[in-house]
Write a protein that binds this DNA or RNA. Structure first.
Length: 1114
RNA sequence: AGUCUCGUAGCUCAGCUGGUUAGAGCGCUACACUGAUAAUGUAGAGGCCGGCGGUUCAAGUCCGCCCGAGACUACCA
């Protein structure tokens, strides 16, 4: 692979035909693996200086997508950075292996539904299938992990279905249980009567779950207690819940009115109460003479007699009313008006009917106000709501007993809602009934409507530690901040208890056993305890049970324990929410507290985690909640939540749209580094990324291409000159301005990039590196210094060619920059960075690290940062740019030297600064001199503007006029202000004393010259030519043509040549005066002007001169 | 429905605590350069800074409302 080595100690710098990034990926990957670079990068750092990272476990049940590359780039980058900063960064991998998606997957593959489990397939068979499925794509995940360069330890990952893991989870649950934070309660959950199962919100969010259906809505009249003909009006889209009504809710600040009118169905007089804002929805206008006939049976708003009273909702609270449909009596006082913050006046009447058994809000507000739900006892004596689990009314609701409350395919004359409405109408309890179209959730499996139904569940009383969680969150550094304060903070403020229960099969079983009468229970916190309890039970109940080898269902369900009073206890059949599994990883990954107590202590809490924003209420929350509740601690100190990866059009990538990008193909085609760099540099990781291949190509060309070019350039000449960084460093003070400049910039860059990485700002870091490489290193430093590298070293003592100091300085400077850049970019583009570093360092052996990832992050040297110098070079760049634009305007080629630049100067410092970079500017733009034009010359035309910042505050309203007045000042005024440093501004009767700093004065023009401006710099160019300049210009053109020929003929850069040039008047003085120059530039040993050139080629020179020239290798 | 993010040139993005010609890169067009050459430089065209209203001497920037895109959470009479 390496070229011949002529000095044994050094290898040459590797040179390439072209940049092939995917091959670099491959080569470096092999190198890392063969030499265990990842392991070394961890182990070489001391254990008492850790940076703790938690890997959020992916599920290997699905294939990795491009968004995973995004999330993992963020993770990898900061870990690599901290590694280079000297931290020991262990990264234990993990797999999330439980949960509904896995079960659904298996069911789909087996073509079964949940009901089949335990019937057509046994639970252990089913779980076995889940266990197999779970790791289905593990190889693919491992592969993408390698290929994208994500360093994570996959040899010993934590796996959530392992017994040890489950045991730690049990231990955590036991801690919560002991703190009284675990309880069983019932709550209103989506429930599918047709499928006989509760549904998770995940299932409700499946596409197609919400569909528009037409329901019969009713506005019912609830009779106010103790008043004749006075009613609360409440609207419902589910009349079947009216028999279960036990309360009404109003808004505290909503204004209600009492309206006298007639019932449209019965014609009876009625005073109805509703929100004032909702009046127009039901009534037209007051009509004191209104007759009952006028309102008859219209579905439209009706007139009313008058408004009797206005009342705030707060004043209604506590009022009682008569039960609307008295089938079942409550066991406690009910039928009261409550205050609910969810009440709005957007639709309905502003009064909400409350059926605590069939609505989440209803349930909550009723419980808070101690209003009972309406329940009956089933045949076993258990309480149940007025609708059974099949979705039918219980027998106690006599009129409708046995009827389905929604459409479950039953055949009937009318929906039960309609019959209820008819009954209310007959009883003078109906104000209005209408058809109503709304979106309603359906069970994705049976396609039938879902009911909100009270179900038993186990909860974690998260609300009890809400404040503490909020407090702890204040200490977490969120990226971006808004996710922590907004999304996460708000979530914590409105925290609900955590519903842990899942009635499923493949998950961590809830370790709670209950006696049959439900009065005694035990929570098991370890396998050992389980064994002990089994032993007890065996003795007490005469059983021969053994602790199961697998803690999953169904084996664990078979375990019978015994209560303190000697009753049999069976396990509560629930599994726990998989999110608890992942939130438990800080402990369970180490099998804490059963093993690894010290390891855990060393690794808790995490310094850093990162996942997608969608994990805010997922993993981020569960980590936080468990740490807060069990350890009264944060689980992580810094968290980066990255946004989504969208397609180029900004659509979410989804399989159904077919716009999913295969991460393998992307990486194979464009390399991991381009993918990573593109993702980090294009937008902040927390913003959504519109993933566009064109953007990737741009990154490849602009950044990697340029950096590669810079390296190739360096390698080409360093090999020729045998520069292996062995010489003593040329002191900075002895290096040219431009070297000191790039070194200064480099050190500024190091400082800023270091700070950006430390602050979890990868985009800032990437952009700064990119900017440095493209604009400063390549387009300025290398471009301007090219000839320093290829000019021949000065002969010393006639024989020995030692590199002269200027050339050496150039090599040392460029080398230093390239090595530093490789280190700065290493966290983000680990492959290319290592390739670059190793190409450099393998040749020079200057550092002992075999990989850039084992090196230390560069340290900025404040002593070499020279802001004045940086500004100087900025002037040089801008002035050069202006001169070039003038040349272009005047159509004068750059090879034609010119006499001078005129540069107006406004202060001495500016002149000093420009003087420092004068030679640079002159050679860049091919001009002989700079002439500074000062004020005193009197030829400058100046422009004056107010300084809005200083004046704005003082002048206030007069600012506008001041701006006009100041703009109108003439050259003499400006001169006077500059001289006296004061100006009295009279405006609108006010006078203001202004000083120089209240103005911005710029030189704008030099009358009679072509000028160009850039902000506060103005440049003019002297374009007059004389013979000598023309001769020099011609000489340069001749050099140029000879160089082209050299290149056409594929001469080596070092080949010496002989040149014969056909004589022409136009060339004569050029060759005469600049012959030596031409020879030196082109490595010509012999330059002849001859009458005719037989061989060779024709060249064209300025002035339409055509001559023949012959160029021969010596 | 609520919460949060985003909306600036054809595309991707900068625009700090409000300060007066709104920037960069890419793309496009033209020109130049040619010992980094499947590179490089210069110039040009291209913007009611999503809309409306407000605060202010001054708004891309602050506030309110609306529209659009997206995410999450919830599902409501």
């Amino acid at each position: 692979m390496y070229f011949c080595s002529f000095e044994k100690k050094f290898k040459m710098y590797r040179e390439y035909k072209s940049l092939n990034l995917p091959r670099i990926d491959q080569e470096i990957l092999e190198f890392w693996e063969a030499n265990h670079i990842f392991e070394k990068s961890v182990e070489q750092r001391p254990g008492d200086n850790r940076f703790v990272f938690y890997e959020g476990p992916p599920s290997a049940n699905g294939k990795p997508g491009i968004h995973h590359v995004m999330a993992r780039t963020v993770k990898d980058l900061f870990c690599r950075y901290q590694s280079m900063k000297g931290k020991r960064v262990e990264r234990k991998g993990g797999w999330d292996t439980h949960g509904l998606p896995i079960e659904l997957n298996v069911e789909k593959e087996l073509g079964i539904t949940k009901e089949d489990i335990g019937k057509s397939i046994s639970v252990d068979e089913y779980n076995e299938r889940c266990r197999e499925t779970v790791m289905r794509y593990k190889d693919m995940w491992d592969d993408i992990t390698r290929k994208m360069g994500y360093w994570v330890d996959l040899h010993d990952p934590y796996i959530t279905f392992k017994n040890d893991y489950i045991e730690s989870v049990w231990w955590l649950l036991r801690q919560l249980y002991d703190k009284g934070l675990l309880y069983k309660g019932y709550t209103i959950q989506p429930y599918s009567p047709a499928a006989g199962t509760g549904l998770s919100s995940h299932e409700l969010n499946l596409p197609g779950a919400y569909r528009d259906i037409t329901d019969t809505s009713a506005v019912a009249q609830f009779k106010v207690k103790g008043k004749a003909d006075e009613y609360f009006l409440a609207w419902t889209t589910t009349p079947w819940t009216l028999p279960s009504n036990t309360a009404l809710a109003v808004g505290k600040d909503i204004t209600y009115v009492k309206v006298r009118t007639y019932n449209r169905y019965t014609g009876k007089g009625a005073t109805v109460i509703l929100a004032k804002d909702r009046l127009p929805a039901y009534f037209t206008e007051p009509k004191p003479e209104l007759q009952p006939e006028e309102v008859k049976a219209s579905n439209k708003p009706i007139p009313y007699l008058d408004i009797v009273e206005e009342i705030k909702g707060a004043a209604l609270a506590g009022m009682e009313y008569e039960q609307l449909m008295p089938y079942v009596q409550p066991d406690k006082p009910a039928f009261k008006v409550l205050l609910g913050d969810f009440v709005s006046t957007e639709d309905g009447t502003g009064i909400v009917h409350i059926a605590p058994t069939f609505g989440a809000d209803d349930f909550k507000v009723a419980r808070e106000n101690d209003i009972p739900p309406l329940m009956v006892k089933d045949e076993l004596g258990n309480l149940m709501p007025l609708v059974d689990k099949q979705g039918r009314f219980v027998k106690e609701v006599t009129d409708f007993a046995g009827r389905y409350v929604k459409d479950y395919g039953q055949e009937e004359e009318r929906p039960v809602d309609v019959d209820i409405v008819i009954k209310l109408k007959e009883e003078d309890k109906l104000f209005l009934s209408e058809k109503y179209v709304h979106s309603y959730p359906h069970c994705w499996r049976t396609d039938k409507p879902v009911l909100y139904y009270p179900l038993d569940s186990w909860f974690i009383k998260a609300t009890a530690v809400k404040e503490r969680m909020f407090e702890l969150n204040q200490a977490i550094n969120w990226k971006p901040k808004s996710t922590g304060e907004g999304r996460f903070g708000k979530w914590l403020e409105n925290l609900q208890d955590w519903n842990l229960s899942r009635s499923r099969y493949w998950g961590t079983p809830l370790p709670i056993w209950r006696s049959e009468d439900q009065k005694e229970e035990k929570c098991i916190g370890s396998v050992e305890e389980l064994k002990r309890e089994i032993e007890n039970a065996n003795q007490a109940l005469g059983l021969k049970q053994q602790a199961p080898n697998d803690l999953h269902r169904p084996y664990i369900d078979e375990v019978v324990l015994v209560s303190d009073s000697g009753q049999r206890m069976m396990r509560e059949l629930d599994l726990i929410d998989v999110w608890f599994d992942s939130g438990a990883m800080p402990y369970a990954q180490w099998h804490y507290p059963f093993e690894n107590q010290q390891v855990f202590k060393d690794n808790f809490p995490a310094d850093f985690i990162a996942e997608g924003v969608d994990q805010t209420r997922g993993w981020f929350y569960t980590l936080h909640a468990i740490a807060a509740m069990v350890f009264d601690s944060v689980a992580f100190k810094n968290v980066v939540s990255n946004g989504l990866v969208l397609d180029a059009e900004g659509n979410k990538m989804s399989k159904s749209k077919g716009n999913v990008l295969d991460p393998f193909k992307t990486i194979e085609a464009h390399s991991a580094d381009v993918t990573r760099w593109y993702m980090m540099s294009n937008a902040n990781p927390w913003d959504n990324l519109k993933f566009d291949i064109k953007g990737m190509e741009e990154v490849q060309r602009k950044f990697f291409g340029t950096l590669y070019n810079s390296y190739s350039f360096f390698a080409l000449y360093a090999n020729i000159d045998k520069f292996y960084n062995q010489e003593a460093q040329v002191p900075l003070s002895e290096r040219p301005e431009i070297d000191r400049w790039i070194i200064s910039l480099l050190n500024s860059l190091v400082k800023e990039v270091d700070a950006d990485y430390a602050d979890y700002e990868p985009t800032q870091a990437a952009r700064k590196i990119q900017n440095f490489v493209n604009d400063n290193l390549s387009n300025w430093y290398v471009r301007l210094c090219r000839r320093r590298f290829w000019k021949p070293s000065q002969q010393q003592n006639g024989s020995k060619t030692a590199m002269d100091q200027d050339k050496l300085a150039a090599y040392q400077t460029l080398y230093e920059c390239l090595v530093a850049v490789s280190k700065l970019m290493a966290p983000t583009a680990p492959f290319f960075a290592d390739w670059l570093y190793r190409n450099l360092n393998n040749a020079t052996q200057s550092e002992s690290h075999e990989s850039v990832h084992l090196a230390d992050f560069p340290v900025s040297n404040a002593a070499v940062i020279d802001k004045d110098l940086e500004q100087r070079m900025d002037y040089a760049q801008r002035i050069s740019s202006l001169v070039l634009s003038l040349r272009k305007k005047e159509k004068i080629r750059v090879r034609q030297p010119l006499h001078k630049i005129l540069l107006p100067i406004l202060d001495n410092h500016f002149q000093e600064q420009v003087e420092g970079v004068k030679t640079l500017i002159l050679s860049e733009v091919n001009v002989k001199d700079i002439e500074y034009v000062t004020d005193t010359s009197g030829i400058l035309k100046k422009r004056i503007k107010p300084n809005f910042k200083t004046l704005g505050r003082r002048l206030g309203k007069d600012m506008k006029d001041a701006s006009a007045a100041i703009g109108a000042l003439n050259q003499e005024d400006i001169a006077r202000i500059e001289k006296t440093n004061q100006y009295l501004l009279e405006l609108n009767g006010n006078s203001y004393e202004l000083t120089l700093e209240d103005f911005e004065i710029t030189a704008e023009d030099i009358p009679g010259w072509q000028v160009a401006n850039d902000d506060n710099i103005t440049v003019a160019l002297d374009i007059t030519l004389d013979e000598e300049l023309e001769a020099e210009g011609m000489a340069r053109d001749i050099v140029n043509r000879i160089q082209n020929i050299r290149k056409d003929k594929d001469f080596e850069v070092t080949d010496k040549i002989r040149v014969a040039l056909q004589h022409d008047e136009a060339l004569a003085s050029a060759v005469e005066q600049y012959g030596d120059y031409i020879k030196a530039e082109t490595l010509t040993t012999d330059l002849q002007l001859v009458d005719s050139v037989i061989n060779g080629e024709e060249i064209e020179l300025p002035g339409e001169v055509k001559v023949r020239i012959s160029v021969e290798r010596q």
